[in-house]
Computed example of a mutant assay.
Amino acid sequence: MVDTSRKDRVGEFCGVAGPYWALRPVRGGTEWEADPEHVRPADRVERLRAETARCNARSEGRLL
Rank of each mutant, 00 (worst) to 15 (best):
D3N: 05
T4F: 02
R6G: 03
R6S: 08
K7E: 13
D8R: 07
R9W: 09
R9Q: 15
R9D: 15
V10N: 07
V10R: 15
V10T: 14
E12H: 10
F13E: 13
C14D: 04
V16I: 14
V16L: 10
V16T: 14
A17S: 15
A17L: 15
A17I: 09
A17N: 15
A17G: 15
A17K: 14
G18E: 05
Y20I: 01
Y20A: 03
W21Q: 04
W21K: 01
W21M: 08
W21P: 12
W21R: 05
A22P: 00
A22V: 06
A22M: 09
L23T: 02
L23C: 03
R24H: 08
R24K: 11
R24P: 09
R24L: 13
V26W: 01
V26M: 09
V26K: 03
R27L: 12
R27N: 12
R27Q: 14
G28T: 08
G28Q: 10
G28I: 04
G29W: 13
G29F: 12
G29V: 11
G29D: 06
E31A: 01
E31T: 08
E33F: 07
E33L: 10
E33Q: 08
E33D: 12
A34F: 02
A34K: 04
D35V: 07
P36V: 06
P36C: 08
P36M: 07
E37H: 11
H38N: 14
H38A: 15
H38L: 10
V39D: 02
R40P: 13
R40Y: 06
R40Q: 12
R40C: 07
P41R: 11
A42N: 06
D43V: 03
D43Q: 02
R44V: 12
R44M: 05
R44P: 06
